[in-house]
Structures are given as C-alpha cells and as structure tokens.
Design a protein around this nucleic acid. Sequence first.
DNA 1: CGGGGGATTGACGTAGCTCAACCCGAGTGG
DNA 2: CCACTCGGGTTGAGCTACGTCAATCCCCCG
Lengths: 259, 259
Amino acid sequence: MNEPPSQRRPAARRRTPVEPVAVEPHRCTPTEQRRLLGASPFFAGLSDAELAQAAASFRQANYRAGEVIHRAGDPAARLSIVVAGQVKIARPTSGGQDVLLAIIGPDEHFGSLLELGDATYRDDASAHTDCCVLWTSAEAFHALLLRYPAAAMATLALVAARLRAAQETIEQLSAYPVDRRVAATLLALADRMGREEDGAILIDTVLSRQDLADMTGATVETVSRVLSDFRRAGLVDSGRRWIAVRDRARLSELARRGA
Amino acid sequence: MNEPPSQRRPAARRRTPVEPVAVEPHRCTPTEQRRLLGASPFFAGLSDAELAQAAASFRQANYRAGEVIHRAGDPAARLSIVVAGQVKIARPTSGGQDVLLAIIGPDEHFGSLLELGDATYRDDASAHTDCCVLWTSAEAFHALLLRYPAAAMATLALVAARLRAAQETIEQLSAYPVDRRVAATLLALADRMGREEDGAILIDTVLSRQDLADMTGATVETVSRVLSDFRRAGLVDSGRRWIAVRDRARLSELARRGA
DNA sequence: CGGGGGATTGACGTAGCTCAACCCGAGTGG
DNA sequence: CCACTCGGGTTGAGCTACGTCAATCCCCCG
C-alpha cells in the first residue's frame, strides 16, 4: 500500500483500458471456410460432403472498421454470415438520425432473407470493427435452406430470437424512461460481449455515446448525462468509446424497476 | 337535394357505422379443419394424406371477445393458428400499461415457437373479437416443421415478416413524434383490414383509443387529441371504437414527412 | 331513463430535446 | 518529443412535446 500518487488511478479511470481490437484481414482457405460454416449454427450437423457443397456458394469479404457494406435502398442481393469482427446494422430515419438496430457478431447473419421479399435493403450495414464475412446470394441461400431443413430450422431459431429482442426493445421504447433503457442496453451488451476486467465487466467493443444513443432512441447529450449519473453512483465506469459495468446487480435492479 | 335536416348527418358522422362483427362460435368438422390448415400458408402444398396427418395434431378452441387465451408468465405450451376472428397480443409492462404488439388475424400464428426456447409466454393473448383458433403443442409443431420443410420455410417467412414490422415500429418509436406514429399505424391498419365505406377506408375492427395508444406508445389523451386534429383536418373520421381513413394520400404524406 | 365506459378537452408539470459553450485525450505532423 | 488539432464527451440553460390529473361529455346498454 501507500503507492506513489502518480501510480494511483483516479476514482473513475478515464484512460482507455483495452479496446484497440484489430482483426487483421485474414484470408481464409476454402478448408477454413468450410470449418467456419460447419461451426456456425446454420450448417451444424451437415456431413463433410454436404458442407463442402454448401460452402461452395459462399464467398469471403473483408472490411475495415467504419467501411460501408451496403446502404439502405441498395438492391438486396446478399445474405452474409459474420465470421470475425462485428457489423453494425443501422436504419436511417427521415430526420437524419440513425436507429441502431443491431450489432452483429460471429456466427450471426445479416442482409436479405429471400423470405422477406425485400427488393432493397432497409438498413445500412457497416463494419463496426474490422471484420470478415462470408456471403452468398439471397437466392442461393434460399436454395440451401430448402435443401437442408436443419439449416432452415436454425435460421428460423435465429430470426425468432431477433424478433424476441425487437419486441423487448419495443416494450422499452414504449414504456420506460431513458435511464432504464440505457441500463437495460448496457446489461444486454455486457452479457453478449462482456469481459472480466478487474472487478468490472468491460463491454468488449468500441462503443461511442452516439452508438448508445442510437440504440436507445435518445440523444447523445441525454445518454452522456445518464452515464455521468451512473458513474457517480458507482454503477459503471466509462471513458472515450468504452464502458464497463461495475455493479451489475444494482444496474439490473434499475433496469427492471426504475430509479 | 334539400333533405330534411333530421336526415343529414353531421360533418363528422359519430354513430357507429358498422362494427358489430360477431363470429358465431362455429365448431368445424375434422374435414373443415383440414381444409383450413391446407389453405393456411403453413401447410399449403401438402398432399391430402400429409394434411390429414398434420391436422391430427391440432385441436380447436373458440373464444368470446375479450376472453383471455393466455397470460404472460404462463408456461408456454401452445402454438396456435387463428382461423377466424382476431387475437390481441399485448405485453404487460412494469408500469401497468400495456404494449400492444400485434393483432393476429386469420392464417397467422401466435404462441410459442419451440425455437424461441421460451419457458413461459412473454405476452398476454386475448380474443380481440370472437374468434376460433387451431392449436397444437409447441413440441408437436416443432416436429411438424422438421417433417415438412415447406412448413418450416413458410413459418420462417411469417416470422421474418413480423421481425420487419417490429423493426419498423422501433424506428417509429425511436425517431418520430406521436402524430406520425398514429398516422402510420392507421395506414397499416387500413391496409391490413380496411373496407371501403362510402368514400373512406373503414378500419374493420373494434379499435378503442386505448388500443391505438398501446400500439403507438402514447397515452389515451394524446391519441384522442391527435385524432381530433386529424378529424378537423379531414384526414380521418372516427367515433366510439371505430376509425376510418378519409384522405389516405395526405395521411400517408404526414406519416412519411411529418406535419 | 339512468348508469357506465369510452372519448374529449383543459390546465399544468416535466423528461428529454435543442442549442451552445467548453473540456480533454489521442493521433499527427513538424 | 512537443504542440496542434480534432473528434468525442460533458455540462448548462432554455423550450416543448407529451404525460398527468381532472372535469365533462356522450354513446350505448340495460
């Protein structure tokens, strides 16, 4: 104890704790591709031969953080599965602000299900981190689902899970004030991509106030105020583009029953 | 012309125009049941033999308007397909208010997809009108989907459509003021269950201000004010538990670009 | 004809948005 | 290695859309 003051970090540590996650644009071999697809929920349980066949219709694409993958209004041609990194799905609104609908991680899909019957994408997709995706045409994916019922069931499960999450969001937006929505969003993020970091759960992705605002239907300023309150109350720890949950129990209490 | 004044209806006609839709609790025969299932998107294209087999796992239930079908928190056991009438899916919130997630009509499903992995229902379901549903256990439905890939694809399409609708709602709640949300909701309702009624599109179901408020994340009072404005502007016509769209074009303009 | 539930309207309070100033940590180029 | 810059974050001071509370109205039913 009695460390030199220069070594002690302030009550709320404001320096970036980790973050600079860089996925080097790996180019995977066909074998690697097959392995990745086989490990994804979509094609789990396929035989090697089937897997090879399925994998044949996929191509690979790498994106740098921030790069646009497609824009709302573009012809909806592709179905993509994220292999590494994260993809941000945001819906532009007529007011200019964006609504952040999802951050898609490994083994999750985005893009066009033929089932949706969409002629064009409704959302912007961009690389939230450096990332690598496998993609195929909407038609080819449809054909795969018809051919491998297990894949169709897996897709159904994933879409159903998203529907459930969307309904949760609707409930929140309809019925709860901003602080509760922020709390709930932080908890969800911590569960999906939290990492233990000396006593707190660090949300292991770059996350700006703007992102959080777009996720909760609030403004940057309001989110900033809410986070300041949370920080003062010892619920979270936060800095430039990072947030850690410090007191999960109390935050969860707040998310469920309000301040 | 020059009708006796007693015969002329006021500018905004306030008497119930139609509404009292009563579905007499019909009890359908097994044959009838099979026909209905065969006509539904789920089991379209099955052979007669397959259809008979699928239909065997379904039972029938009739409810009177207002009757509770299941409550949030009940063990999630059933998957139901609406045959006639409408079912209201509402999520109770911790503040006591309800969020109206959907009004389910004929050939649509509600309840538990096994895929969701829910142990309990998350929503209340109640008969919005007198209605008739065919139901089966979540497990049996799951088995049917595995057995008939076409049914799985149809279910996927329906769930995907709901996801799209939910995302639309999230966009609205996040980014647009109440009047636009109400306008958009009225248009959607008019499209789904509108009926031509002397120059206007009557939304052909009982619809209270409270229902509309629960659909748009607003309060009864606000919705009432918005509707009064719409009525004064000649956009809609409304009365006790009914609404008709009088000027679709302008209402749609308002829904897209704001007042 | 009376009762009751839905609807309307008004007065008022406030959560959260807007606008604006300012701060600060992290790259960047000299 | 330092100074500059710039994007992200914070904080404050109004303003307003919408919620709350409350009174009144008016269909529709018994």
